[in-house]
C-alpha cells in the first residue's frame, strides 16, 4: 500500500516536472490575481479586509491548482491505473500530491500578498502555519470534488459549485483563526482548539474520501 502510494506520488511529481507549463500557469494566475487586487484596492487595506481577501484568493487558487489533477488523466491512463493499483492508494496518492502542491502555492501567494499588499500580520510565523493548515484542508476537499467533477465530464465550474458549500465552514474557521496572527488576543488555548477543529475536519474528509472513492473509481 505505502509503496503504491509512493509510486503514484512519484509519478505525479515527475509529470509536473515534465509539463512545467501548467505549473507556471498557476504561478501566473496567482501573480495576476494579486496584481489586480493591488491595483484595485486602496493603499494599505486594513487587516480585516486583507484577511478575507487572502482566503478568498486561496480558495480560487486551490480550485485552479487541484482542478487538473483528475481532469488531466485521460481515459486510457485511468484504465491502466485501474489494472495496477487500488482505488484507496490512488486517492491517497492524489491527495498527498495535491497537498504538497497546494502548500507550495499557498506560500507563493502569501509572498505575493506580502509584496504587493503590505503586511498587516504581526506574528508572521504563526500566520504561515495557519496558511499551511488551510492549504491542506482546501486541497483535500477539492481533490475529492475534482474526482466527482471529472466523472461528470465537466469543467472547473462544477468543482467550485460542489466544493464551496462544503468548504465554507472550514474557511470561516480559518479566517477566525488567522486573527490570532493579527494580534487579536484569544482566550487561553482557543487557538489550539480552533486549529484542532480544522484538523478534525481534514481527518473527516480523509476518511470519507477513502470510503467513498472506490465508488467513483469504477466506470
Amino acid at each position: 500500500m505505502t509503496r503504491k502510494v509512493l509510486a503514484l506520488l512519484h509519478k505525479d511529481i515527475l509529470l509536473e516536472l515534465r509539463q512545467k507549463h501548467t505549473f507556471y500557469g498557476i504561478l501566473l494566475y496567482i501573480a495576476s490575481t494579486v496584481f489586480v487586487l493591488y491595483l484595485s484596492m486602496p493603499e494599505s487595506p486594513d487587516a480585516q479586509v486583507w484577511n478575507s481577501l487572502f482566503w478568498v484568493i486561496q480558495l480560487f487558487v486551490c480550485v485552479n491548482t487541484v482542478a487538473k489533477s483528475f481532469l488531466q488523466e485521460s481515459r486510457g491512463r485511468m484504465l491502466y491505473f485501474y489494472s495496477i493499483t487500488s482505488p484507496r492508494a490512488f486517492i491517497i496518492g492524489k491527495m498527498i500530491y495535491n497537498m504538497l502542491l497546494m502548500l507550495l502555492m499557498s506560500l507563493v501567494s502569501l509572498i505575493f500578498f506580502f509584496v504587493f499588499l503590505e503586511n498587516p500580520v504581526s506574528d508572521s510565523l504563526l500566520f504561515v502555519g495557519i496558511v499551511m493548515l488551510g492549504g491542506l484542508g482546501l486541497s483535500l476537499v477539492f481533490t475529492l470534488m475534482s474526482a466527482i467533477a471529472a466523472k461528470a465530464q465537466q469543467n472547473a465550474a462544477l468543482i467550485a459549485i460542489l466544493g464551496f458549500p462544503v468548504i465554507l465552514p472550514q474557511l470561516l474557521l480559518l479566517m477566525r483563526l488567522s486573527k490570532a496572527a493579527f494580534g487579536e488576543v484569544f482566550r487561553d488555548g482557543a487557538v489550539w482548539q480552533l486549529a484542532g477543529l480544522v484538523g478534525l475536519f481534514d481527518l473527516l474528509v480523509l476518511v470519507l474520501a477513502v470510503v467513498l472513492f472506490p465508488y467513483l473509481w469504477k466506470d
Binding site: L162, V166, P169, V205, L208, Y215
Partner: peptide, 12 residues
C-alpha cells in the same frame, strides 16, 4: 456519483 456527493456533503 450523486450518491457519493450526497453522502460526503451530508456528512460534512
Amino acid at each position: 456519483i450523486s450518491a457519493v456527493y450526497n453522502i460526503f456533503a451530508f456528512a460534512m
